[in-house]
Structure formats: structure tokens, C-alpha cells
């Protein structure tokens, strides 16, 4: 193979290294993780947005609105950035006595808060269903640490009423803080150089190595890395809700060197990268958070 063949392999390798998009482990996604370098960059709001909320149901002799807690948990998972613990998940942590324990609490917030603490939740959304002629639906958001109700609403529904998802979301928006309905994604920027300035749009975010950037989602962001003496790196990424995008930037020296390190090649590469990221996003919208497991006892 001649020189051109070698050059094409070289540029392919370079561009290949310019960006890689991959699912990022969930443990990393909530603002850097414990004890990891750069973990301090996540804002307090991030932890708040990711707080765990358990959805439990308490019925006072009513069979109306069956499965309401599951629907509400599903809507919270779908519409918010909260980590939602539904009754099935709570049962795994608390044990089979969960339902009996909720009944034993009789709706008492401090008692419900103890159950919330046991399942690792910061708040409990207690869905109450009772009947006094009408069906009475109550939603209470209980602060686990304080053992007190933060917000409580009650709705009287017709006996045969069945609120649709929009109605339930309407109730939840009255109970949950507005910020909960903002969703987030994460951009992890890595580079082959330390000290490269990272811009999110026009905002400088720090220098590499840099903690993961937690951003509102869905949204499109421009990532730019600059360092004196190096060709700037630019990428445009679409971040899905709860999605994690990884941008691995490889900055090359300006001038001299191989022809493919010159600025115009990098600019073209940048376009490719942006397209590549888009494609990556479309095809890897939800990086897997779980993988199948099998075992053998032997």
C-alpha cells in the first residue's frame, strides 16, 4: 500500500478518535458520583432533581380507581427527573409487610415517613383513596426526614370517574415542586489534553478534566473545546431526557505536522462529528441502564 493508503488509515483513526458516543453508567450520571474526580461540579439542584420519591397507596375500604399508585408512579417516572420507587420496588426493599405497614400507619405522616426511610426515599407520595358517597382522592407529599406533609390535595370524584393521565399529571403538578418537571441529561466531556477550556454554548464550564455537565433535556447543545496552539474542537449534541452523552474530544496541534491536522480538516471533521453525534443520539436515545444476566450453579 502506498502513502495515500497510509494517510487514509491515519485520518480514519484520527476522526474515529475525535468523538465516541456511549452510554454512561447510571452511577456516574447523577452529577459525578461519590468520591470521583470532579464530582463537585454538579449543582445542588441536580441532587434535588434526582431525589428518590416513593409512591405508596393507602385505601380506606375503597376499591375505586384500582392501580392508581402504579399509574401515578409511572407518570412521575415519565414526566419528571425524580427517581421513583413504585410499590413493587418498595416491596422488594421493605418486604412483604409493606402493604400492611402502610395500613397500620393509618395515613399518619410520621409513620409513613419511616416506611419511606426504609426504602431509601426522601419523599413519599401517599395516594389515598376513600369513599364518602363520592370517591375521595388525596395526594400527600411527605417529607421523610421531617415526617411531615409538605403538600396535600384532595379531590372529590364521581363514583364512576376515572381520571385520565392528563388529569393525574394536573394533580401531580399541584403536589410536586415545579422543578421536578424539568428533566435532565448529562454530557460527559473527555479530551486527550488536560487544560482545554470547555464551553457549553457560550458558557465556559471549566477545563479538562471536567466533571460531567448536567443539562436540561431534551435540548441541543454545542460543545466547544479550546486550547492555545491546538485546533478548536466543536460538536453539537442532542441530549435526551435522562440520557447520557459522552463526547471524547481529541485536539490536534495547529499548523505543521500531517496535512490532516490543519484547521480545515478539523472543521470538516467537526461537521462529521456533529452529524455523528446526532446519529448517535437517534440510535442510542436511551443508553442501556441494565443488561441481561444469566447464571450457572456448579
Amino acid at each position: 500500500m502506498g502513502r495515500d493508503g497510509a494517510a487514509s488509515r491515519a485520518i480514519a483513526a484520527t476522526i474515529a478518535a475525535l468523538v465516541a458516543i456511549a452510554g454512561v453508567p447510571a452511577a456516574w450520571a447523577d452529577g459525578g458520583g461519590k468520591g470521583k474526580p470532579g464530582a463537585g461540579a454538579a449543582s445542588p439542584d441536580d441532587a434535588e432533581a434526582r431525589r428518590k420519591v416513593a409512591v405508596l397507596e393507602y385505601r380506606a375500604g375503597s376499591t375505586a380507581l384500582p392501580g392508581l399508585d402504579r399509574r401515578i408512579a409511572g407518570l412521575l417516572k415519565q414526566q419528571t427527573s425524580l427517581t421513583v420507587i413504585d410499590a413493587d420496588e418498595a416491596r422488594k426493599d421493605y418486604g412483604a409487610r409493606l402493604d400492611a405497614a402502610v395500613v397500620d400507619c393509618g395515613g399518619e405522616p410520621a409513620c409513613i415517613a419511616k416506611i419511606g426511610a426504609k426504602v431509601g426515599a426522601r419523599e413519599v407520595v401517599l395516594v389515598g383513596v376513600s369513599e364518602f358517597g363520592d370517591v375521595i382522592l388525596t395526594l400527600q407529599r411527605i417529607d421523610v426526614r421531617r415526617g411531615k406533609v409538605a403538600v396535600r390535595i384532595a379531590e372529590a370524584l364521581a363514583e364512576d370517574a376515572s381520571p385520565d393521565d392528563a388529569a393525574l399529571v394536573g394533580y401531580l403538578r399541584r403536589v410536586m415542586p415545579e422543578n421536578d418537571f424539568l428533566r435532565f441529561g448529562t454530557i460527559k466531556v473527555t479530551a486527550n489534553l488536560a487544560g482545554a477550556q470547555v464551553f457549553l454554548g457560550k458558557d465556559p464550564k471549566g477545563k479538562t478534566p471536567i466533571a460531567p455537565l448536567r443539562v436540561h433535556a431534551p435540548a441541543t447543545y454545542q460543545i466547544r473545546l479550546t486550547k492555545d496552539g491546538y485546533v478548536p474542537f466543536t460538536a453539537r449534541v442532542q441530549v435526551p431526557p435522562d440520557g447520557d452523552i459522552e463526547v471524547d474530544a481529541r485536539l490536534t496541534r495547529e499548523g505543521g505536522g500531517a496535512w490532516y491536522t490543519r484547521w480545515w480538516v478539523a472543521a470538516i471533521a467537526g461537521v462529521v462529528i456533529a452529524g455523528g453525534v446526532g446519529a448517535g443520539y437517534l440510535l442510542t436515545r436511551e443508553p442501556p441502564t441494565a443488561v441481561p444476566g444469566t447464571g450457572t450453579i456448579d
Partner: peptide, 30 residues
Amino acid sequence: GSLATALVAGLGLAAAVPGCTAEGSVSLHF
């Protein structure tokens, strides 16, 4: 020609990303 090849290679990488992120698996021996 080399540049064109390189760009295709670059796009190919992006298209191959799902391959990179194809679902993994865990196999445990007890």
C-alpha cells in the same frame, strides 16, 4: 480521495456506535 474515504470512515464510526453500545450481558458462575 483520501479525505473522502476518511469522512466516510468517520460517519461509519458514528453509524457503528450502536454497535459499540450494543447490549452487553452478564454471566455469573455460582
